[in-house]
Design a protein around this nucleic acid. Structure first.
Lengths: 168, 168
DNA sequence: CCGAATTTTCAAAAAATATTGAAAGTTTAT
DNA sequence: ATAAACTTTCAATATTTTTTGAAAATTCGG
């Protein structure tokens, strides 16, 4: 397979993959393109490679910057802005975990705390089942939260070798 | 907070949560409703509780069954079918992990294997960066795959205590 | 086998989401 | 201060996804 074809497949699969994870196709594709580009690219480079409009490109680059996955690069003597993606995949994964934890897991745990305190007779099977369900989700969620916190701080080498030890 | 209100909040949040994870709102809401229902429900019960159409209810129940999260219950003397969700949250999580691994991670790893074998001069920085990126994603993906395999087989108590040990 | 009860399908409609492109805004070199 | 280069915004449009509901299919008791 030629590089040009492999690149296209990589970008298009990364885009499809993203849509399964609540990330829009274009955002994932821009990320993929930057990952495999050895040098920073401009907005125009990205527009051209992916055949998307200026507005779309701009919005999604910004979103990637919000997620901490892409950074603006200043190149002396250049008028245009350049963009580059973090290439260390372990850092990328940690960054995504960190953001999703903050945006999704933490609010969910807050809600569960409130819901667990529902009024009503615990003898009533509806009340009991509700509280039990909420409590068990909360328990697992809290555990996941702690685990992810530690993971976010971890080095890959340390993490992998620790995992190897338990999951042997 | 009254049970009825707490239920509604739980269902609606579970639905919103699902949409961030590529699961459609209705499917997540049906799942939430079944999780907090002590007894199995019929299609009509679900339609009425969530105010959704018969077709929509039917398709999403089926999808939940495909995911292994809901099962049909046969109740002697009843003509209608009843549905019930797995209540053990650890089992639910393992089931979801298992399915997503099969549907998403495994095909991605297969693709990466192919892409890693791209033709071209490894001295060319474009080729080199492409291969390096693909390889490192593959490496992390393979590790995740193994880890998840072990997790799928694990008991919750064992899993949590093992995690406590490393992530202390 | 009949017909009522129930489930399933799927084309059409609605809703949600993503994309465009042109205009407005900003920055920079001279 | 000006104008060209570049970036950002956002209303309109297009696309994708979800939902509906009525018709078709299936199941089951008698």
């Amino acid at each position: 397979m030629k590089l040009i074809e492999a690149k296209q497949q990589f970008i298009s699969s990364w885009g499809a993959f993203g849509t399964h994870w609540g990330i829009n196709r274009t955002m994932a594709q821009i990320h993929a393109l930057l990952l495999i580009s050895p040098d920073p690219l401009t907005q125009d480079d990205i527009m051209e490679e992916l055949n998307i409009s200026r507005g779309n490109t701009n919005m999604n680059i910004r979103e990637l910057i919000n997620w901490g996955l892409v950074e603006r690069i200043f190149i002396p003597g250049e008028r245009k802005e350049f963009f580059s993606a973090e290439k260390d995949i372990w850092k990328v994964v940690k960054q995504i975990v960190k953001e999703r934890k903050k945006r999704e897991l933490e609010p969910m745990l807050q809600l569960l705390d409130k819901l667990e305190a529902v009024e009503g007779d615990k003898k009533d099977k509806h009340v009991k089942n509700f509280v039990d369900t909420v409590s068990s989700i909360k328990k697992l969620g809290k555990q996941a939260d702690k685990t992810l916190d530690t993971m976010i701080k971890a080095e890959e080498t340390w993490f992998v070798s620790a995992l190897m030890k338990i999951f042997k």
